[in-house]
Simulated scan of single mutants.
Amino acid sequence: MHKRTTAAAASVIATLAAALATPASAQTPSPLAEWQYTAGIPLEKLMQPSLPTWRIRVGPAASFRPLYDGSDRHHMVAGPSIDIRYRDLFFLSTGEGIGMNVLSGPNWRVSLGAAYDLGRRARDDSSRLGGMDNINPAPAVKLAGEYVISKSFPLVLRADVRRYFGGSNGWVADLGAYMPMPGSSQKFVWFAGPGVTFADSRYMNSWFGVTPNEAARSGHPAYRAGAGVKSFGFGVSATWIINKHWLASGDAAIQQLVGDAVHSPITQRATGTVLDMTVTYQF
Rank of each mutant, 00 (worst) to 15 (best):
F153P: 06
M179P: 00
T28H: 02
Q255F: 01
N243D: 15
E34V: 07
R202F: 13
K45E: 09
F90G: 05
V258A: 04
K244T: 14
R123N: 04
P49K: 12
K151D: 04
D160A: 09
R4I: 05
S93Y: 11
T5I: 14
A115I: 00
F232V: 01
T6D: 12
L43K: 01
V102F: 15
Y37L: 14
N107S: 15
D125W: 08
K3I: 14
G183K: 13
A159T: 00
G226L: 13
A26D: 01
F91M: 09
L257A: 02
M47L: 03
S63R: 02
S249N: 10
V258T: 08
G250L: 07
A14F: 10
R4G: 14
T22W: 12
N213D: 12
Y37V: 02
N101A: 07
R109G: 10
M179K: 11
F64W: 15
P137C: 06
G259Y: 05
T211A: 09
S81G: 08
L32I: 03
D69L: 11
R65W: 08
P29I: 00
T278F: 05
I82W: 00
M204T: 04
A10E: 06
W190N: 13
W35Y: 12
R224A: 11
L257F: 06
Y178K: 04
G219T: 03
P137R: 02
A114Y: 11
M181C: 09
P194S: 15
S104F: 09
V102D: 07
H2M: 13
I41Y: 03
S185H: 12
A216F: 12
S50R: 07
S111P: 02
D125I: 01
A253I: 02
M76D: 06
A17S: 09
F232P: 08
P60Q: 13
V161F: 10
A144S: 14
L103A: 14
H75R: 15
A140P: 01
G209A: 06
L103W: 11
L257S: 06
R85A: 06
A21N: 10
A21Q: 07
Q255I: 05
W171A: 06
R109I: 01
T273R: 11
G167V: 05
S249Q: 04
Q186V: 11
P182D: 09
D69C: 07
D88T: 10
V12L: 08
A18T: 10
L247E: 10
P212S: 09
A227E: 00
W246K: 13
T22G: 01
F191S: 00
W240Q: 14
V210M: 00
G79W: 13
T273L: 09
H220G: 01
P180S: 07
Y164E: 02
D251R: 02
T22H: 03
F165E: 01
A62I: 14
K3F: 15
T197L: 07
R4S: 15
S81M: 07
D260A: 11
L67D: 06
G250I: 09
I242H: 15
K244G: 12
L118K: 11
A33V: 00
N205P: 10
W240F: 12
I84W: 15
P29D: 04
V141A: 10
P23T: 04
V236R: 11
V110Q: 04
P29H: 03
K142N: 05
G233E: 03
Q36G: 03
V148H: 08
H220A: 08
